[in-house]
Computed example of a mutant assay.
Amino acid sequence: MLVWLAEYLQLHVASGFNVFSYLTMRSILGILTALILSLWIGPRLIKALQRMQIGQTVRDDGPQSHLSKSGTPTMGGVLILLSILISGLLWADLSNRYVVVTLITLAAFGIIGFVDDYRKVIRKDPAGLVARWKYFWQSVVALTIATYLYWTATQPAETALLIPFFKDVMPQLGALYILLAYFVIVGTSNAVNLTDGLDGLAIMPTVMVAGALGVFAYVTGHVNFANYLQIPYIPEAAELTVVCAAIAGAGLGFLWFNTYPAQVFMGDVGSLALGAVLGIIAILVRQELVLFIMGGVFVIETLSVMLQVGSYKMRGKRIFRMAPIHHHYELKGWPEPRVIVRFWIISLILVLVGLATLKLR
């Protein structure tokens, strides 16, 4: 929005407004805007949630240390979404279809998560939004977006699969692109949701992955960098750098209140939306497989649940003391901050490995 204003002022007032046309400047302003908004809205939102008694319900069969979290305000993901959307609308180029698709994905999955949280904490329905309906609406949104992107692709690179560490392996997916995009969006959305079980555990890896995807977006949309790194040049991808910056800024602002011991939880409104937006950005910059690496903590958490359920149904035995796996380590005696920080360290390592694929190919 402000991009158009800056262009007008540059032409009719002063050439100095040209500074706002630079992607790097708008990315910096995007992260700062989202961060400041989060820090400003946060205390007000927490007080409002406390006043409305919108608090977290804690399971009795979980770690005993979590019982003290009961009643902690939840649905704080509204704070993250508002900060990202406002920052993105202000500093990103809204004529860019990649930006529009990304913000729509964020908002749509946020609405699904909001309905789930609303049913749980306000209507006091322990099940929330019934699982089959949650997956149904996630699938509708993901398939609609994937189909749109497939039919509006303007160059072969937009529907090719990039294989990490191999510069000459780039198979065309054809209609399979829709299926891949669907699984990436829905899978990442639910993976972040499963990871969001400890104070700050999900948000910091999200910030790191978003920052790394911002680097991928920048180089993918820059013809010289793309040619040098031998990756496809997709001009529209560059503008996603601003959105990634906004995600990182909003995430850091939320972490201010979500760090141990948490003053607020993000709820499904935050985790489902953040996972989906990471998925759609990875698709747009053609780095789905690298997302699998960088989001390794999300993958491990999801696999732990799948293995636990599968083992119990097939053998009647559990592999872990409790799933997702972060609860397993808690029940082994690890203090919650130790689990969180160690998972953050693992995330950082995996993000660096993902970034290394830009050069090691």
Rank of each mutant, 00 (worst) to 15 (best):
S70W: 08
Y312N: 15
L360T: 13
T102W: 06
L360R: 13
M170E: 10
T102P: 03
G316K: 09
I54V: 09
L240D: 01
I345P: 00
V299T: 07
Q10M: 10
D199R: 05
Y312I: 14
T152A: 10
F166G: 00
H66L: 06
S27M: 02
I231C: 01
P164A: 06
R132C: 08
P232L: 00
L173V: 00
T159G: 02
L39V: 14
H66F: 04
L29K: 07
V353C: 08
V99I: 01
R119L: 15
S139K: 15
A153G: 01
V242Y: 03
Y177F: 15
V269W: 01
R342A: 12
G113P: 09
A282I: 12
W344V: 02
Y312K: 15
P73Y: 00
T188S: 11
L32A: 13
P156I: 01
T241V: 08
V169H: 12
E288I: 10
P232R: 08
I122S: 09
L103I: 00
R51W: 14
A160V: 07
F254E: 06
W256P: 12
F114V: 05
V78G: 14
S21L: 14
V243P: 11
T57A: 15
Y8F: 14
W91K: 04
L39C: 05
R26C: 09
F166K: 07
R315C: 09
S311P: 03
F114M: 03
L194R: 03
G270H: 02
F136I: 14
A34T: 05
G267L: 00
R361H: 11
N193S: 00
E288R: 06
A246K: 13
T102D: 08
F183T: 04
R361D: 14
F257D: 05
D268I: 12
R44C: 14
V305D: 07
N227W: 03
L291V: 03
K359L: 02
L39K: 10
A248R: 13
V219N: 06
N190H: 01
L348C: 11
M52V: 15
L2T: 05
K359E: 11
A191F: 05
V19T: 06
I104N: 06
I41D: 08
T195Y: 02
W91Y: 04
